[in-house]
Computed example of a mutant assay.
Amino acid sequence: MTNQATGPACTRCSAPAVVHWTRRLTDDEFSAFVALEQARRDLETALADPQNPPPDFGPLPAEADNVRSVYGCADHAVSLEAASLVHEKTCTAPPCDCAPEPAPEPAPEPDPAPLPPGWTDA
């Protein structure tokens, strides 16, 4: 009995992936994604009950809100630090020579709740 690996494969060589990171969609990928979303909205609008208000979808997806996963095997992996960042749309497989986006700033700590009357902050 063979033990076949299942799951994502390395983008470069198709070996079982051990790491993944994200990259922005290419212009063609993003255009196709927006066209698919617009087609879905058009169909939903066409099928909507005319006696009800038309569907409200909000704005179409933005490029900055969409990423695609890239997978790497043990031979084509990137570092943990690099994997935690969003890479450029041209980053498709190691060796990664793009400049990933900086990590987002951490959310500020909320101000502590005020102490009940009579308590001190000693």
Results as ranks from 00 to 15, higher is better:
M1P: 06
M1W: 06
M1V: 11
T2R: 08
N3H: 13
Q4C: 08
A5D: 13
A5N: 13
G7P: 11
A9R: 11
C10Q: 07
R12H: 14
R12W: 06
R12D: 12
A15W: 02
P16Q: 14
A17L: 07
A17D: 01
V19Y: 04
H20M: 13
H20F: 15
W21F: 10
L25A: 15
T26V: 12
D27P: 08
D27C: 11
F30L: 12
A32C: 13
F33N: 13
V34H: 10
V34L: 13
A35E: 15
A35H: 12
E37Q: 11
A39C: 08
A39N: 09
D42N: 14
T45S: 11
T45D: 01
L47Y: 02
D49N: 12
P50D: 02
P50F: 02
Q51E: 08
Q51V: 05
P54D: 00
P55K: 02
D56S: 01
D56K: 00
F57L: 03
F57R: 03
G58A: 02
P61L: 02
P61V: 01
A62P: 00
E63F: 11
E63I: 08
D65R: 00
D65A: 05
N66Q: 08
N66E: 11
N66A: 07
V67R: 00
V67M: 01
S69L: 10
Y71P: 02
Y71A: 05
Y71E: 03
G72Y: 04
A74Y: 07
A74E: 14
D75I: 07
H76Q: 04
H76T: 03
V78A: 05
S79N: 09
S79C: 09
S79I: 04
L80C: 09
L80K: 15
E81N: 12
E81H: 13
E81Y: 12
A82Q: 13
A83E: 06
V86Q: 01
K89L: 08
K89Y: 07
C91M: 08
A93E: 14
P95M: 15
C96P: 03
C96E: 10
C96R: 09
D97W: 10
C98H: 13
C98E: 12
C98I: 10
P100F: 00
A103V: 01
A103R: 12
P106C: 04
P106I: 04
A107D: 10
A107G: 02
E109Y: 05
E109N: 06
P110L: 03
D111M: 06
P117W: 14
P117S: 10
W119T: 04
T120H: 11
D121L: 04
D121A: 07
D121W: 09
A122W: 06
A122P: 05
